[in-house]
Design a protein around this nucleic acid. Structure first.
Lengths: 166, 166
DNA sequence: GAGAATACGTCAGCCTTGTTGACATTCCAA
DNA sequence: TTGGAATGTCAACAAGGCTGACGTATTCTC
């Protein structure tokens, strides 16, 4: 994964200019990355915060508020505001835990799942086009660099999600 | 750059599962991408918007408010508030245009340049570590996918900046 | 069984950063 | 020369972060 030895290797890809290009590419690409879902969300009066909540509830049905907080990296107050509207709008279900009644387990309703699908379809379409244009080797590199860029705790969250597959 | 032909190729990298992993990687990586500058900015009471303005003024000294707007993709009112504080704090200089007096030409002061350096040093450090861990081939792929993910107009901005080099 | 710790919800208030609307100045073209 | 387009500023509002404080229910620990 690392330590593949820079010795005797061409290090031109580590120049400040190359790094800056990477930084700017990341900035511009992220805009494209969020553009399509943003349009859908706007029509329903939601924002990116709602998208994130919906995405990760879909990925981990029955997850708790606490867990969601740590994945999203926001405070419970911030998360609560979003969840409140999603629950009120009938997109998310909050069920008191059976084993531990302090916990609330979150799942998507049918409506919630429908919106999730619309959002992820849009985002996947763009991703697919980018992947197809770049090719499989590029995609592997893309994923490697992204993973190396994460903070340790986020990489753990990412890995845990990746493990559970489709 | 594209159209390298999928025919007869392994298309496993285009499965929904792979695309989802890419989406989540993008989400988690972007957090790491902004984490270090965010910390520096917080100590001075600034936010990401200030960072973006400073970055692109540094990249295109003498640029106008209008141009900055289109690069950053925000309204002029939004940008103006950020610029106002940066100018008041003596980090950015706004000079009335000579040819067209409606325009303001923006440049960094010495203090502004110092902050820019601190921010980009921090961001480059992380980028460099990620690049080094992933290796040059991965980096090439990374850049390819990011570029393919941009909206057309942003890709133009990106290319224009890339051209002018260091 | 009492008290501490945990999980969650909520209220209040603040900040950044996006938005629209209204307006002043400047330039340009009819 | 005058009206419209372009550039930029000010004001007000909303979303969505944050901290702090508090209430409640539940579980864990001694």
């Amino acid at each position: 994964m690392q330590g593949q030895g820079d010795t005797g290797q061409n290090l031109l890809f580590l120049t400040d200019d190359q790094l800056r290009k990477g930084i700017e590419a990341m900035f511009f690409a992220y805009r494209g990355f969020t553009a399509d879902p943003d349009r859908i969300l706007a029509t329903r009066g939601y924002g990116r915060a709602h998208h994130r909540a919906i995405h990760f509830i879909h990925r981990s049905p029955g997850t708790t508020v606490n867990n969601l907080m740590s994945i999203l990296g926001v405070t419970k107050q911030s998360l609560n505001r979003v969840l409140r509207t999603l629950i009120a709008d009938g997109l998310v279900l909050s069920k008191v835990g059976t084993r531990d009644k302090r916990e609330r387990h979150l799942t998507l309703t049918d409506d919630g799942a429908a919106l999730e699908r619309a959002l992820s379809d849009a985002q996947r379409d763009r991703m697919r086009a980018a992947y197809r244009a770049a090719g499989p080797a590029a995609v592997a590199g893309f994923r490697q660099v992204l993973e190396a860029m994460m903070d340790e705790d986020l990489r753990r969250h990412f890995a845990a999600l990746a493990e559970r597959g489709v």
